[in-house]
């Protein structure tokens, strides 16, 4: 298929349109993904999450620069929230990365959540496949960053980086939001600010409470100071890049990469089955008016939802 070839050749126009088609659920996009799928699985997917104002975008921008110095190609997906009132969105994370706009080794794409919960867009999974097939060595995904339950990233990334800053009271916020459990690496950003020591100690304490870590990987805590203090920030950036690589290597060495990929595979399969099996049934029930009739039966207490579900399942699953 021509489009597959174009994606694999890294044709930017094709890739960006394909991601758009995925987002807009244009039917042809699914077929393209089918063709692309065998060519995926090579990229190292890194997720960035954390509290608002933590400096995720700026950090990713610097990481991209560092990866480029190491001669790696990078795809970046930036997720921003869709306004629930208007359906519109301002996708502004890109601003921080515009210096890479002319670098053919970097592809940056902004995605709106379009109502999806969990800090990502529904299209993210397939968009990662596309950038992977495009041949990017690394695919970096930035979650919305509202400090809410942004744990969805764990299903897509090999390495999850959680970015925190001192003095915002995020410590507790983050624990509540369950973000800490998904971290493979912590970054304390703006660590020259007051409260950085306290945040570090709290994280250390929390980690000490854990019984064991999968693969023996205890999430390291990296302190990144003021990014304009070039020397010290450069060092932190090196450390972050090396640690991200080390984490991936650990997954490989401990044969855990499969587990990570399995999680994504299960999720995708689940989603695909949902789309393939349940969606048509539901559509038919609505269109034939059966849904309404069944609801009326419930209102009259003639039956219960479970009995009805069993009946529907019995009918369709036999087919």
């Amino acid at each position: 298929m021509e489009i597959t070839k174009k994606v694999r050749d890294g044709d930017v126009r094709t890739v960006s349109r394909l991601i758009r088609n995925i987002e807009d659920r244009i039917p042809g996009a699914k077929d393209t993904i089918k063709h692309i799928f065998p060519h995926t699985g090579k990229a190292h997917v890194i997720g960035f999450t954390g509290s608002p104002g933590a400096g995720k975008s700026t950090l990713i921008d610097c990481l991209v620069a560092e990866l480029r110095k190491r001669d790696k190609t990078v795809g970046v997906l930036l997720v921003d929230p869709t306004s629930p009132f208007t359906g519109g969105a301002i996708l502004g994370d890109r601003i921080r990365m515009q210096r890479h706009a002319l670098d053919p080794g970097v592809f940056v794409r902004s995605l709106a959540t379009r109502g999806a919960l969990g800090g990502l867009s529904k299209a993210v999974g397939d968009a990662i496949h596309v950038l992977d097939a495009m041949g990017k060595d690394f695919v970096i995904v930035e979650t919305v960053g509202t400090g809410q339950q942004e744990v969805e990233i764990i299903n897509h990334a090999h390495t999850v980086v959680v970015v925190l800053i001192p003095g915002m009271g995020d410590e507790i916020q983050a624990i509540k939001a369950g973000i800490l459990e998904i971290a493979d690496i912590f970054v304390i950003n703006k660590a020259d600010r007051d409260g950085a020591g306290k945040l570090y100690r709290e994280l250390m304490y929390m980690l000490s409470m854990a019984d064991e870590f999968p693969g023996g990987w205890k999430p390291p805590i990296i302190r990144a100071e003021n990014m304009f203090a070039a020397d010290s920030f450069g060092k932190s950036l090196h450390e972050l890049t090396d640690t991200i690589n080390a984490h991936y290597q650990n997954l490989v060495d401990k044969h855990l990469l499969g587990d990570r990929i399995l999680r994504k595979a299960m999720l995708e399969l689940n989603e695909a089955l949902h789309n393939a099996i349940l969606d048509p049934v539901l559509t038919e029930l609505v269109e034939t008016g059966d849904m309404r009739r069944m609801a009326d039966m419930l209102l009259k207490k003639e039956t219960d939802p479970y009995t009805l579900a069993d009946e529907v399942a019995g009918k369709y699953l036999r087919e």
């Binding site: 700026t58 301002i90 601003i95 921080r96 515009q98 304009f228 070039a230």
Partner: peptide, 11 residues
């Protein structure tokens, strides 16, 4: 020496 600052553009 001091680094280059780019507009973080708040909106």
């Amino acid at each position: 020496v001091f680094g280059e600052f780019r507009d973080p553009a708040m909106y």
